[in-house]
Amino acid sequence: MSALSQAKILICDDSMMIRKKMRSLLEGYGVTNISEAKDGKEAVEKYAEVLPDITFMDIVMPEMSGVDALKAIKEKYPDAVVVMATSIGTEGNLTEAIRYGASDFLQKPVEEERLKKLLGHYFKEA
């Protein structure tokens, strides 16, 4: 298990505000290597470019949905850790995301405690 401060994290969300808030929370945990993508298509491209340790993926996004981006990433990188971060955590969406290999689910609005607990599963010092 590597240290959280050394982690490479990719935030995929079409909302500038959500990206900003997530970045700020992660920076608060000492993470410095943070990349962002504003839609599903960019998420797939960015993933290949930075090979993050963990990716936070929104579901409703333009160009390509988060579930399609997850599918594309997992096809090429089966070990990718992708956490779906969304407000539409319906049974249907979650089942679909799990089927395509999502590692976890983060309900929006993101609660700091829940994010911290989740990061603790993957990194030291979370």
């Binding site: 409703v60 969304t86 407000s87 539409i88 955590g89 319906t90 249907g92 929006k108």
Partner: peptide
């Protein structure tokens, strides 16, 4: 709006 609609769809689904 997205958050509100997301929570609405979860409620309807549940």
């Amino acid at each position: 709006l997205n958050l509100n609609n997301g929570l609405f769809t979860v409620n309807v689904s549940n």
